[in-house]
Simulated scan of single mutants.
Amino acid sequence: MKQELSITDFKVRTTIVVQWGEMDAFQHVNNVNYVRWGETARIDYFKAMGFIINQNPKKMLYAPILGFQSVKYISPVLYPDTIIIGTRTEEIKSDRFVLNSYFFSTQQKRLVALKTHEVVIVDYNKQQKIALPKAVIEDINQLEN
C-alpha cells in the first residue's frame, strides 16, 4: 500500500495565506492562483538550490527557466485557508529537471493540488538551452539528500 504524503516529507516548503480576492464567482480559489503560488514555490526551491534570484542574467553562466507546467486540481480551496506547498525534484533528465509542488490545505488537512514544473537551463550569453550542468545535479542531490 502506498503511503500518503505529508508536508514533513519536503525539505523546501512555502506558506501561502489565501486572500479573499483570490476566490472567483464560483466561490473557490481561481485556478490562476495555483500557478502563481507554484511560481513562488519554484523560486523558493531555486533559492534553496543556491541560484541567485534577480541577478543580471548576462553575468550568469546559466539560469533555470520554466519550460513546461501543469496543475492538477484535487479539491477546491476556499477563503480562509493557508496552503503549505512542498516542492521537490521528482526526475533529473539530460536537459531538464522536473519539480513537483504539492499543495496542502491546513483547513482541509489534505492535498488539494499538484503542480509539475519542467525546468530547463539556459545559457544567456548564447541564448539557448544547454544540457543540465553537473553542478545543478549536485545542488539538487545535496538539497534532496
Rank of each mutant, 00 (worst) to 15 (best):
K109D: 13
S94C: 05
W37G: 00
Y45R: 07
I53H: 10
G21C: 10
Q127H: 13
E90F: 02
L114G: 04
L61R: 14
Y34N: 02
Q27A: 11
A131V: 08
A113I: 04
K93I: 07
F26M: 13
Q107P: 02
D95N: 14
K129T: 13
D24A: 09
T82A: 07
K59H: 13
D95F: 14
K58R: 15
N54G: 05
Q19E: 15
L66E: 06
I130H: 05
I84K: 09
V17D: 14
K58P: 00
Y34Q: 03
V18M: 06
K93P: 02
K134Q: 14
R13F: 02
F10R: 03
S70V: 00
F103H: 06
Y62W: 13
V98C: 07
F46P: 11
I65F: 13
V71A: 10
R42N: 05
T106V: 04
T87P: 04
D24W: 08
K134S: 12
I83H: 01
G86W: 01
K58F: 12
F46C: 10
N125S: 13
E90L: 08
Q108Y: 05
D24C: 10
N141F: 06
R13E: 07
T116D: 01
N125V: 03
S105K: 05
Y45H: 10
A63I: 10
K72I: 09
D44C: 03
D123P: 00
V119Q: 01
A48L: 04
Y45C: 03
E118Q: 12
T106H: 01
M49V: 05
T15A: 06
A25V: 09
N54V: 00
V98F: 02
K126V: 03
R13S: 01
Y79D: 07
I16L: 02
